[in-house]
Design a protein around this nucleic acid. Structure first.
Lengths: 341, 341
DNA sequence: CTGAAAGCGCTTACAG
DNA sequence: CTGAAAGCGCTTACAG
């Protein structure tokens, strides 16, 4: 007489000749249960391929041991490449969460969407991680609503004054500084900046701020004529570099706000016969896989996704477990390659 | 007197002056509830920010409305790039699952691991999707164990005879054929093959089989001297192309088993002064983002992650809902760029 | 060290 | 169209 449905703790109790409560304790390794009993129960559970019903356990304990990862991605088409870093974050977040004993539920959304933030309210997750590039300032209300609902969440991004919740991110200002400082150390004097500096993209604006600080440190004046805005795409980088050349303004280096922009700019420079790095040194930002393979290989600023993921997961687990949590930043790292050699 | 904890269906019932059962029905849009009552209850739920406790609902219904995505990735270091396609699959699987009303739980594993396949037994997921490259033949026992436990799962990959469970994948043989046929159509006669043909990599072996069929169709004999094995990495592609040149054997085209291998091979060819595509035409496989940006841009075979994801999700949802499900294959698509122009 | 009992918050036959 | 009731499978105070 075989049971076809999954075994329950009661089935195990019957076989072991103990109460269901004792089975529950034994499976959770409670020291209250005599060691021999515990081992016997665990052996039976293994043999029956028993696994605790997470719905039942979660209903009792109000814990799901699950994190919800909300990925915001507003990019489209060719710009989809930008996802690479975020996808690498996902990978590392999942691994870090596993170390802390949490599963990860993934949800892809757009910032202007409704956000599906009921994960915690519906007890599907114990906390949220918000991952994406973009301007949370515009979405402060939504963050505030999250906080009002006592939702635990960590935001990937900069530390923004008065922003509800906790965050962990990359020190983009420092990264912009390192990139530009590398160029001034090489003796470059006319360093162009290609990229958006809008406050809608706080990450990118911070990179520009670092650029300005490095120029100042080197005693160089920022020249607005060699700053060209560009959003994160290869084609916009290409166009921006063309504009730069057409302007007639001299420049001997470019700091591009992302690798994609840098790669587009390099293509324009090479088509125009400018030698990289001899005539123009180029630095990007991101260290996407592509960066090492373009020719010349691109010097860039790397954000370590493993450290970023660890920071976010440690933060949200701390919030869940009621420990004090501080927002944090990690330092990015300059990777020197041939585009500035 | 405010309640601080989350509202329950009973709270709503009290406010609405109905029974808790009626609340439950109204929230599930049951036609049994009078329309006016339904609207009133739903309005209260919205106002209270009420969301059904998924643990409680799942405990009752035995459905989690969640899919577990097990990603197997044994690659490391520089080869991590190979993940791009799999990560793109993840992205598309999540979107497809959302369309079907399912959440996605992500778990990263290694094939030689223990696999954490208790997702269904623990009622955390209603079914699994297994995603990765690699040889499931070696893991047939694990698949059989899954099937024995009545676990519902879909495997990303080829249709393998006698393999337990259902699968959906790319027709790699067809892709290898298209790539090679493109080269023979261009009049190339000495088409080298770079890549593993081991049965440990059934996907890659199928590409080689397609290569052989296209040669046969063109009346060309396969020349073993211009077949060089290489696993999926840029550096191995580089070395393989060097070997090919050192062999002294003539060749006017290369079909590389993946884009990474092709890109490495192109680097070796260019360093040796061979012109692409004039001296040697090169075709890859994958259409990784990189492929469009290397120079010359790489002709390659594209697997559409959106179609793949849809196939997997449709399959697993069918299995969950007890519908008949067949394994399937999707046709890849040749993308012609300058490396064969 | 163990058991009997309550209860987590739903869904759904059953009865009206 | 609605309600009273049972029960999904756990965890954990309480009592011994």
């Amino acid at each position: 007489m075989m049971k076809t449905s999954n075994p329950t703790s009661r089935d195990i109790a019957d076989i072991a000749g103990v109460s269901q409560a004792t089975v529950s304790r034994a499976l959770r390794n409670s020291p209250l249960v005599r060691e021999e009993t515990r081992h016997r129960i665990q052996a039976i559970a293994r043999e029956l391929n028993y696994y605790v019903n997470r719905n039942a356990a979660g209903l009792r304990t109000h814990h799901s041991n699950t994190l919800a990862l909300l990925m915001f991605d507003d990019s489209e088409g060719a710009d989809r490449q930008m996802n690479l870093f975020l996808l690498s974050m996902l990978d590392n977040i999942t691994r870090a969460a596993a170390r802390f004993g949490y599963d990860v539920l993934v949800s892809l959304q757009q910032l202007h969407d409704d956000w599906h933030i009921e994960y915690q309210a519906s007890h599907r997750a114990d906390g949220l991680i918000l991952l994406g590039y973009g301007d949370y300032v515009e979405y402060r209300e939504k963050l505030a609503a999250l906080a009002d609902a006592h939702t635990r969440f960590m935001i990937w991004g900069p530390i923004v004054k008065d922003q509800p919740g906790h965050s962990f991110g990359c020190d983009n200002e420092n990264g912009g500084y390192q990139a530009t400082r590398h160029l001034t150390d090489l003796g470059r004097k006319r360093i162009a900046f290609i990229g958006s500096t809008s406050r809608r993209c706080p990450e990118l604006a911070a990179r520009h701020a670092g650029y300005l600080r490095a120029l100042a440190d080197a005693g160089l004046a920022a020249n607005e004529k060699i700053r060209v805005p560009a959003n994160n795409s290869e084609s916009l980088g290409y166009r921006a570099a063309q504009q730069l050349m057409e302007s007639g303004e001299a420049f001997d280096a470019i700091f591009a706000v992302t690798d994609l922009v840098a790669i587009g700019a390099m293509r324009a420079l090479q088509e125009a016969g400018r030698k990289i790095p001899d005539d123009v040194s180029v630095v990007g930002f991101d260290d996407m896989p592509l960066a090492a393979y373009v020719s010349p290989a691109l010097t860039t600023v790397q954000q370590d996704a493993e450290i970023g993921a660890e920071g976010l997961v440690r933060g949200i687990v701390g919030l869940i477990e009621g420990e004090p949590v501080e927002s944090g930043l990690m330092a990015p790292k300059l990777i020197v390659r041939n585009s500035t050699a």
